[in-house]
Design a protein around this nucleic acid. Structure first.
Length: 165
DNA sequence: TGAATGATGTTT
DNA sequence: AACATCATTCAT
């Protein structure tokens, strides 16, 4: 059982956002984006990484939020194992951010598989998403790693957190 | 700075 | 059937 608190996300809009997978309509890959909200959209990036999105808008709309980073909380042994990192010694937090900062690292730490695409958060997937009541200060900036739509400040992050890319 | 790596969408 | 693209990471 590993988990954490979200620290960095990016929004991908249903309309007027050329960087969004939904921009050119529904396909087999982005089908989940057009499904009911509260489900996950998982896809392969650069042939290597499993990226996790949360479908946010109503059915057939086509929007999602990319989970870019989270702050590990509680037992991190599973996250470490998934990432191929030796158990981090308590106190020596030098490279803790390598565990879960960056969308590819998030996917690997959580042990995502393409098979989870379209599943509901919760018992179905074994992956839970909930509001723990934290209300950190939030900063905005442009999104990372996209060619088009780079002018829109749709990246949101906990501005006082160390766990941001 | 560039290699790795494969699913997906687009073009032939 | 073939090619270009890619919401990235890691090693050099």
């Amino acid at each position: 059982m590993g988990g954490g608190r979200l620290t960095e996300v990016e929004a991908y809009l249903p309309i007027g956002d050329p960087a969004s997978h939904s921009f050119r309509g529904e396909t087999r890959r982005n089908r989940s984006m057009f499904g009911p909200p509260g489900r996950m959209y998982v896809y392969v990036s650069y042939g290597i990484h499993m990226l996790l999105n949360v479908v946010c808008d109503a059915e057939s709309v086509g929007s999602a939020v990319l989970i870019r980073s989270f702050e590990p909380l509680g037992d991190v042994s599973m996250l470490c194992a998934n990432r191929g990192m030796s158990e981090l010694r308590s106190g020596a937090t030098g490279k803790l951010e390598l565990l879960s900062c960056g969308p590819g690292r998030v996917g690997q730490a959580l042990g995502l598989h393409l098979r989870l695409d379209g599943l509901v958060f919760g018992s179905d997937s074994g992956l839970h998403l909930f509001d723990d009541g934290a209300r950190p200060a939030v900063g905005r900036a442009v999104r990372i790693g996209i060619a088009k739509g780079g002018d829109m400040p749709l990246r949101y992050f906990a501005s006082d957190s160390f766990f941001v890319t």
